[in-house]
């Protein structure tokens, strides 16, 4: 009897209870999406103009520790830029270019130079860090790009070649007075690697560093591989293929990023060290390797060599890649075939 009275009393107050209940229910439903979204922490992302390109670092975690790591990673890339950009007069490379005999450089620049010379030998000379004079002659990234003449190229090529360099202690000796080292095919990748090392040291487990398309992936993308679109070399903004990648670097060299055209002929920035002219064997090469510096240099070398010789070089070095020939035909290294989806 007592229980029935209580039940009746509650039922009499139903309209009031319902109104309050409805409001509470709706509040819960409002909060539900936010609660669900917070189960996956929002990525922490920052973009800066650095090393002549756009650098974007994305950490798939947030919080003060991640923010500090992000700041440190950018600071590390700025430090590398100060050290190795030939455009900055105080950089090691600019100082070395300005003197006829040679100069002391930092241990870090020296180590990258040694690695560049090693990659030059491994690629049969296709990757050449001494093409500064040739690049200056074409001025593709300068005020007045122009088609270099055969005589100009002969003269410039006399000031190029790793055989005209000697390393003594911390000193780089130039055997050609106007030789200019250009790390254009490796420095960006190296800076990306250094930023990656900073993030890993800070305990970051899932992140991406994108320096104008030179990518380093730390870990996977929260339980699945990163899906890396490969730029179609003839359709701006279009993706040719998607590579599944995790904890590795993906770097592309293509003839479509920096170029000028004269009478319908495209003159791009990837020069064949044998001729001093833009290489005509490829449209683009994408390399997947464990580090971005190696991927960067090998992408350049494989581009110069062309798809057949380029893919042999990639296999010899134990890295994978997609090589697009001058006629647009793609060639994929065997180890990458199962990881590529064509679009």
């Amino acid at each position: 009897m007592k229980s029935s009275t209580l039940s009746d009393s509650i039922l009499l107050r139903v309209p009031t209870l319902l109104r309050s209940g409805c409001v509470l229910l709706c509040l819960l439903l409002f909060l539900l999406p936010a609660a669900c979204r917070q189960s996956d922490p929002p990525p922490l992302q920052r973009t800066e103009l650095l090393m002549g390109t756009v650098v974007e670092i994305t950490l798939l975690q947030s919080g003060p520790k991640a923010e500090a790591a992000l700041r440190d990673a950018f600071a590390e890339m700025r430090r590398i830029e100060q050290l190795m950009s030939p455009q900055l007069p105080t950089s090691d490379l600019a100082r070395l270019a300005a003197v006829p005999r040679g100069a002391e450089v930092s241990a870090e620049t020296l180590a990258l130079l040694r690695r560049s010379i090693e990659l030059n030998h491994l690629s049969g000379g296709a990757f050449d860090p001494t093409l500064g004079r040739v690049k200056r002659l074409w001025d593709i990234e300068g005020d007045k790009p122009h088609v270099a003449t055969a005589a100009e190229l002969r003269k410039a090529l006399r000031q190029c070649g790793v055989d005209k360099l000697r390393i003594e202690g911390n000193r780089v000796i130039k055997l050609a007075p106007k030789l200019e080292i250009d790390f254009g095919g490796i420095a960006k990748g190296y800076a990306v690697d250094r930023a990656g090392a900073v993030l890993r040291r800070a305990g970051i487990r899932h992140a991406s560093i994108n320096a104008g398309g030179d990518l380093l992936l730390i870990g996977d993308r929260r339980g699945r591989p990163w899906r890396i679109g490969v730029q179609d070399p003839r359709k701006p903004g279009a993706v040719l293929a998607v590579i599944a990648a995790a904890d590795e670097a993906v770097v592309t060299s293509g003839d479509y990023e920096r170029f000028f055209e004269v009478d319908g002929v495209r003159y791009h920035h990837l020069f064949d060290p044998a001729t001093g002219r833009p290489s005509r064997r490829s449209r683009s090469v994408t390399v997947v390797a464990s580090d971005a510096a190696t991927a960067d240099a090998l992408a350049t070398a494989a581009f110069i060599l062309g798809p057949e010789a380029g893919s042999r070089l990639l296999r010899q070095q134990g890295v994978e890649g997609i090589l697009i020939g001058a006629d647009g035909t793609p060639l994929v290294t065997p180890g990458l075939k199962d990881r590529v989806t064509w679009r």
Partner: peptide, 26 residues
Amino acid sequence: CVPNHLLLRIEGGRSSAEDGYDLISR
């Protein structure tokens, strides 16, 4: 535009992830 220190980016709306990739290598 790196020389002019300008960066134009798009936020919100449809992302490249919906087109089947997270990042683009170029």
